[in-house]
């Protein structure tokens, strides 16, 4: 049973990876990557690493790839200009990097992995790879990398908020335009107001501010 699952998942992983680099339409390439990541999660499950499998799906298939799908479907599929192509030096560099990676993988597999074939495999303690085991390792043995990674994430979040902060809309524009607070829709509205009135009020305030500015310029 697990052998059948392994071969299905392995085929899915390879097909997904090949699809990412061969499919012309970026939307399908992104979907192939999703398929690849989901198949990888199945391989993790077969290794009894449920937590890693779930994290893989939640983080990669669920968060990272969602953004990819989002962006690719917004800016269009086939209409995307493919650019100039890598050029001769770029092609050579790509092949050199791929060759180096292949040699490295072969060294790793031939040098260590093949010895385990024919044995019963490594000793796995009960609870290995469970959330408890991973959690206690993260907070004892790997505390420093864990903390550094959390600072990195915090920096990324703060940076994203800083970059994405926009002027106007919900923020105070400083020209008397009524601003909308998050708490505004939590409290009851005064009589005679509503979404339409709010919209008109906004437009009126905006035109009033503009005419004020025009008068200042003229005088």
């Amino acid at each position: 049973m697990s052998a059948v699952l392994f071969f299905i998942a392995a085929a899915g992983t390879l097909a997904g990876a090949i699809g990412v680099i061969t499919l012309k339409d970026p939307f399908y390439a992104v979907l192939a990557l999703v398929g690849h990541l989901a198949s990888l999660a199945v391989l993790f499950l077969l290794l009894r690493a449920e937590f890693i499998a779930a994290a893989q799906v939640v983080v990669y298939a669920g968060a990272v790839m969602v953004l990819y799908v989002f962006v690719v479907s917004y800016i269009g599929g086939q209409n995307l200009a493919s650019g100039q192509g890598p050029g001769r030096a770029g092609t050579f560099g790509a092949f050199a990097c791929a060759g180096a990676l292949v040699v490295e993988l072969f060294i790793a597999v031939l040098g260590s992995g093949l010895r385990a074939i024919g044995t019963i495999g490594g000793h796995v303690a009960v609870g290995f790879g469970s959330p408890e085991a991973i959690g206690s390792l993260l907070l004892t043995k790997f505390l420093v990398p864990f903390e550094i990674a959390s600072y990195l994430l915090l920096l990324a979040a703060v940076g994203a908020v800083t970059l994405a902060r926009r002027r106007g809309g919900l923020d105070d524009q400083g020209d008397g335009t009524p601003t909308i607070s998050v708490m505004d829709f939590m409290r009851p509205r005064p009589f005679g107001t509503g979404t339409m009135a709010e919209g008109f009020g906004h437009a009126e305030a905006l035109s009033a501010a503009q005419s004020e500015r025009r008068q200042e310029r003229e005088s």
Partner: peptide
Amino acid sequence: PLYIFALSAI
């Protein structure tokens, strides 16, 4: 719960 969130991601 992680299983639930993984599936809701899919």
